[in-house]
């Protein structure tokens, strides 16, 4: 399968990238910056991993860079789009500042919506069914201090996915969401150990969510094994309560 993946250079995106490559897929990986890990994967999978640097903070420019002749051109028949790139804006609501809020929405909401538009158009062009998976966050379902703005962006993308599934199901396009719990990634690196422990205590398994479990779920959802799954939000969160 040909899979477009954003936010591929680090964190959960990098593990998703590795998992998809290991399963034999071709990955069109997008990130703001190239990383040593991506370079190593490109060496390992020269025929399967294609990288493009793009900043989703400018959705129109990112779309132009991604759906370009030298990357995901009309000659490439996309099977799936995995929207993983995200930006955090953590603060309490009374400190909310519009500028960083807008910047976060460009990356977390507007860019993935625009890329979904062109991913579906690519699937239509090739007359193919396809899968879309958005990476959300447990914060959209369980409240945490300081995450109201970030969680709202994930809630928006979950609603977008549900409606995309309804709208395009008749043409064979599936859209699902993976809802990870807190993982040990750069995104949660600013949290103190005490804060992390408090968060993990709210899970049934009492620990950080396993990143590879999230990646495997994404790989499953884009595959034909999930042919009857659409419009869903699959929680991979250690049973957050």
């Amino acid at each position: 399968m040909n899979i477009l993946l954003t936010g591929a250079s680090r964190g959960v995106g990098l593990v998703i990238c590795k998992t998809l490559l290991e399963q034999g897929h071709a990955v069109y990986a997008v990130s703001r910056t190239h990383s040593d890990e991506i370079a190593a994967l490109q060496k390992q999978y020269p025929e399967k991993l294609f990288f493009k640097s793009a900043d989703l903070g400018d959705p129109a420019a990112a779309k132009a860079a991604i759906f370009a002749e030298d990357f995901v051109s009309n000659k490439i028949a996309l099977d799936a789009f995995v929207n993983n790139a995200a930006q955090a804006y953590d603060d309490i609501v009374t400190n909310l500042n519009l500028e960083p809020l807008r910047a976060m929405y460009e990356v977390n909401v507007f860019a993935p919506m625009l890329l979904t538009k062109y991913a579906i158009r690519n699937m239509l062009l090739h007359g193919k069914s396809g899968g879309i998976v958005h990476i959300s966050s447990i914060s959209a379902h369980t409240g945490y201090k300081g995450l109201a703005m970030y969680a709202s962006s994930k809630g928006a993308i979950e609603a977008f996915s549900k409606n995309t599934a309804r709208e395009w199901g008749g043409r064979g396009v599936r859209s699902n969401v993976v809802v990870p719990g807190f993982m040990e990634t750069a995104m949660s690196a600013t949290l103190s150990q005490e804060q992390k422990d408090r968060i993990y205590k709210r899970t049934s398994l009492k620990k950080a969510t396993d990143i590879s479990s999230v990646a495997e779920t994404v790989a499953f959802l884009v595959s034909d094994r999930a042919a009857s799954i659409t419009g869903q939000a699959i929680h991979v969160d250690n049973g957050t309560i």
Binding site: R121, L124, R171
Partner: peptide
């Protein structure tokens, strides 16, 4: 609207 979307992508191509 779905046929028109299909028309759009094929015409654009």
């Amino acid at each position: 609207s779905f046929d028109l979307a299909e028309l759009t992508v094929h015409v654009e191509d």
